[in-house]
Amino acid sequence: MNTITDTNFNFPGQTNLYKGKVREVYTINHSKLVMIATDRLSAFDVVMPKGIPYKGQILNQIATKMMEATADLVPNWLEATPDPNVAVGHLCTPFKVEMVIRGYLAGHAAREYHLGKRQLCGVAMPDGLKENDKFPEPIITPATKAEMGDHDEDISREDIIKKGLVSEADYVVLEDYTRKLYKRGSEIAASRGLILVDTKYEFGKTQDGKIVLIDEIHTPDSSRYFYAEGYQERQDANVAQKQLSKEFVRQWLIKHKFQGLPGQTVPHMSNEYIQSVSNRYIELYEKITGEPFVKANVADIQNRIKHNVESYLNN
């Protein structure tokens, strides 16, 4: 089960290295980013102790396809993908918030709703909904971006502007881009027999001040999908939705009494369970993209990435 869970490259012109929860970002000549999607798995803002085979490749390739499919709507940071696990693009200064948009009452929103809350991030949620019902209109519920090991936190539009995390003028653009991307993502999902339930987008500013989409988009780590076929029947029968997302990992962890809370220990993940998660990610890839997944050569992932990135940078 060859996986890539950590890197420590020294690329030509390298000026910085940032390690996030699942991605490692190398800055080149203060102008370009090399983003490596590792096989690390994060849930409840905690990185699991074992990597998931092919997960990084899957996330990187879905994100690449989705950025290409939305570039006519929203500019993005991407320049090239010289390796199955690697994206290269423009250096940006990230906004310190994630733009979460929800079309349905699911996941975190449903958990808050069940506690009796009818506002999330300052946005009203109507009474009378049950879990996985569709909202009358999609709602934007931002979160502050956490450092590794910390939890993302809900925040309202008003607090984002008041605290100076994003200027009001920029926030208007982020909201507009978020709604456009979600609409296009929902259309792509529908063409695959899926419902894009909720997702998050991250944005940054290029060195010349342009707001662009960064990081991943419409992947199973950043998004929740339901199968469209049978959705309404399942809602009417009050049974769980058939879904494509990382939620299956979260539910497994909850079942094993882990939600990333203080004092909790990550449960043991057997090799069989790890393989089942990998298989599920491959299923996600094929359903989301409508294409068969082609496994990259993982005999020596580190050297493969090093060679492909250096060849690209040198050329």
Rank of each mutant, 00 (worst) to 15 (best):
N2Q: 05
D6R: 15
D6I: 10
D6C: 09
D6E: 15
T7S: 11
N10D: 14
P12N: 09
G13V: 01
Q14K: 11
T15R: 13
Y18N: 07
K21N: 13
Y26I: 06
T27Q: 08
N29E: 08
H30K: 15
S31V: 05
K32T: 14
I36Q: 00
T38V: 09
V47E: 10
L59D: 03
T64W: 05
T70H: 08
T70I: 05
A71E: 12
P75C: 06
D83P: 02
D83W: 01
N85W: 01
V86K: 01
V86G: 01
G89R: 03
C92L: 11
P94G: 14
K96D: 14
I101Y: 13
Y104Q: 08
A106V: 02
R111P: 05
G116Y: 13
Q119Y: 15
V123F: 12
V123D: 04
V123L: 12
G128S: 08
F135P: 03
P136I: 01
A143T: 14
A146V: 06
E147W: 11
E153M: 15
E153P: 08
R157A: 09
D159G: 06
K162Q: 09
G164D: 03
V173C: 06
L174F: 12
E175R: 13
E175N: 12
D176H: 11
Y177Q: 10
Y177T: 03
L181K: 10
G185C: 05
S186A: 15
E187A: 14
R192F: 04
L196S: 08
D198H: 07
T199A: 04
T199I: 09
Y201V: 06
E202C: 06
F203S: 05
G204W: 07
K205F: 13
Q207V: 08
Q207E: 14
I214C: 12
D215M: 13
D215P: 14
E216K: 09
E216S: 13
T219P: 07
Y225D: 05
Q235S: 13
A240L: 12
K242Y: 09
L244V: 14
I254F: 07
K257E: 12
L261G: 08
P262I: 06
T265D: 03
V266E: 02
M269H: 03
S270L: 03
S270F: 03
Y273P: 00
Q275G: 00
Q275V: 02
S276A: 14
N279K: 04
I282L: 00
E283M: 05
Y285A: 00
E291Q: 15
Q302H: 15
Q302A: 10
N303W: 02
V309R: 01
V309K: 01
V309S: 01
E310L: 03
S311N: 06
